[in-house]
Nucleic acid binder design. Structure first.
Lengths: 120, 120
DNA sequence: TTAAGTGTATTGGTGGTATATAACACTATA
DNA sequence: TATAGTGTTATATACCACCAATACACTTAA
């Protein structure tokens, strides 16, 4: 599914973001286990440690919890937390820069809406 | 002016982007010379090679041209070229991802416009 | 108990970034 | 002709992020 990796972003970061996305979009359910480090490693032809590093970030943020010998389980209530966190982050740190960029490039609403209409 | 450097982006990349921005915004004029490698190095406490690396990128893209012994001069017509290039890049590679993100986070137009209104 | 399944700590290689230092080739000016 | 100003190249050094190979500690189930 992750056709290819973006060479400008560390793989473990992309894995981390992918898990967040899948929780957010409901493909990974609260209370269930993440696919094991070795499974993902085999599927994507990666070193288990690389996946472990992504999973470690999720543990540090209390998104998942480790059950020794069993795997990593998604905590309850996390979907909402992620949604709010991403919204907050987008609105405060990304969106202002985007607006500034739009103004700097003197882009019209037509320029911005056209690609959206075409995608429909 | 560049209060501080973003630790997540190479300095020479930030220098390169800064020059592009200043040309775009009219602070650096076509036909004029860029500040010399050594001046910038002294001002920002950097190694001359670091500045040279940024300037090399600008030469590779024909933004500036070298006059041996004199310095690097901004080519004519470059302001428009940069504007079009940035617009193109923004609309095709950044904006679609932004729109997708907005949809994914189910952000309303109110959420997006509020910070803009507040800034006025 | 044994085998297979969890995650992870250690170690080492590779490549990118930036520095320090020096030298080169050229031009403009006093 | 000196001198000081351009950008550039070369070498060595240091540091850190990324990733792989290996080995370890633990749990579960046959």
């Amino acid at each position: 599914m992750p056709t290819q990796w973006d060479p400008d972003t560390p793989i473990y970061i992309q894995l981390y973001q992918q898990v967040l996305s899948r929780i957010l979009d409901g493909y990974i359910i609260e209370g269930e286990a993440l696919p094991s480090v070795r499974k993902v490693a085999a599927e994507y032809q990666l070193n288990p440690i690389t996946i472990s590093k992504a999973y470690q970030m999720l543990q540090d943020e209390n998104i998942v919890e480790k059950q020794r010998g069993k795997g990593l389980f998604v905590n309850h209530g996390v979907q909402d937390i992620i949604l709010n966190r991403e919204r907050e982050s987008f609105l405060t740190s990304q969106w202002p820069k985007i607006v500034e960029q739009i103004n700097r490039l003197k882009l019209s609403t037509d320029d911005l809406l056209q690609p959206i209409e075409e995608a429909k």
